[in-house]
Amino acid sequence: MFSVTYAQLNGWLTAFLWPFVRILALIATAPVLSHMGIPVRIKVALAAFITLIVAPTLPAMPQATVFSATGVWIIVNQFLIGAAIGMTMQIAFAAVDAAGEFIGQQMGLGFAMLYDPRAGGNAVVVSSYLNALATLAFLVLDGHLQLISALITTFQSVPISTNVVAAASHAQGWKTLVGYGASVFSTGLLLSLPIVAALLITNIALGILNRAAPQIGIFQIGFPVTMLVGMLLLQLMIPNLMPFFQRTFDSGIAQVGRVAGAMY
């Protein structure tokens, strides 16, 4: 008769549950994979499928039961590790959103808002447009596969038994993640700088024209002119976006490795 002991059942459960929590946390926070348009069942099924492939290759799990205090604490740590990796890659997309905000404000479209299902709220229309292009580029460049591969690698660099909360020696990983967040402004400004500079010159030219010929009615033509110039520059910028997105995503994947390495 086939029989299973409690120790065997606990071993099978921990070998699956702890990696599953880390992978599911990544899918819940990573760009594209966490999109609200993807049903929750699909996300859970994808995490379970990846776990079934990865779990047999992992080293021995800590000797703790799932529902003990130690087991619950391990689950919390796995969630934080997966969420930190997902948020690291999310910063690259936040830089694209910031660039859209800067461009929209200069074009006079800062008030033009659209519902963004990715963020679950309203976003500037230019930001939504650039984010859609970034999402397509992310999929074309296999960024989602690279991100999952980077996560699987973290099981070797950051073992299941790692305590990333209580140990002060692991705080460097969180500092690395916070420091990378500063790139949202620098990368966003770098992406939007050509259009922002051109629109600034356009506004200066309109101001000079208003002083030279007040009868033209600069307030009537200023908004259409800046919007048309901004749309034209966006159109001209599109062919150069793919190399920029590729460098941004490669930097995000590399940063994932740095954050994970600093946590151990």
Rank of each mutant, 00 (worst) to 15 (best):
Ser251Glu: 14
Ala64Val: 08
Val44Pro: 09
Gly252Met: 13
Met107Gln: 06
Tyr264Asn: 14
Pro243Arg: 09
Val44Tyr: 10
Phe79Asp: 01
Tyr129Gly: 09
Gln90Thr: 05
Val164Asp: 00
Leu13Asn: 03
Leu190Gly: 10
Gly217Ile: 01
Ala60Met: 14
Gly257Phe: 09
Ala47Pro: 05
Gly82Ile: 02
Ala119Met: 08
Pro117Tyr: 00
Tyr129His: 11
Met1Lys: 04
Gly188Trp: 10
Arg118Phe: 00
Ser186Glu: 07
Gln172Ser: 14
Ile218Ser: 12
Val54Tyr: 03
Ala134Ser: 13
Thr65Trp: 00
Ser192Ala: 15
Leu234Pro: 01
Ser161Cys: 05
Gly82Trp: 02
Met242Gln: 14
Leu133Arg: 08
Ile204Tyr: 02
Leu139Phe: 07
Pro224Glu: 13
Gln156Ile: 10
Leu151Arg: 00
Pro31Arg: 13
Val165Met: 12
Val76Ile: 14
Lys175Gly: 10
Gly11Glu: 14
Ile238Leu: 08
Phe244Gln: 05
Val126Pro: 05
Pro56Phe: 09
Ala171His: 12
Gly11His: 15
Ala94Asn: 10
Thr29Ala: 07
Ser149Cys: 00
Gln78Ala: 04
Val40Lys: 11
Ala212Met: 11
Leu80Thr: 05
Leu58His: 08
Ile42Phe: 00
Ala55Lys: 01
Thr226Asn: 15
Ile204Leu: 09
Ile75Asp: 12
Ala45Trp: 05
Thr5Gln: 07
Ala64Lys: 01
Pro31Tyr: 12
Val140Phe: 15
Gln78Asn: 03
Val178Thr: 09
Ala83Val: 11
Leu209Pro: 02
Leu232Ile: 14
Ser68Trp: 00
Val229Leu: 14
Ile75Trp: 13
Ile148Gln: 02
Thr5Glu: 11
Thr14Phe: 01
Ser183Leu: 05
Gln215Cys: 06
Val229Glu: 11
Ile75Leu: 15
Ile152Thr: 03
Leu80Tyr: 07
Met36Ala: 14
Met107Tyr: 05
Val178Gly: 03
Ser192Thr: 12
Leu24Ser: 03
Leu136Phe: 07
Gln235Ile: 10
Ala99Ser: 07
Phe111Gly: 04
Ile238His: 04
Ile91Lys: 06
Lys175Val: 12
Val40Cys: 11
Ala45Met: 12
Gln172Glu: 14
Asn131Arg: 15
Leu234Ser: 03
Thr226Ala: 15
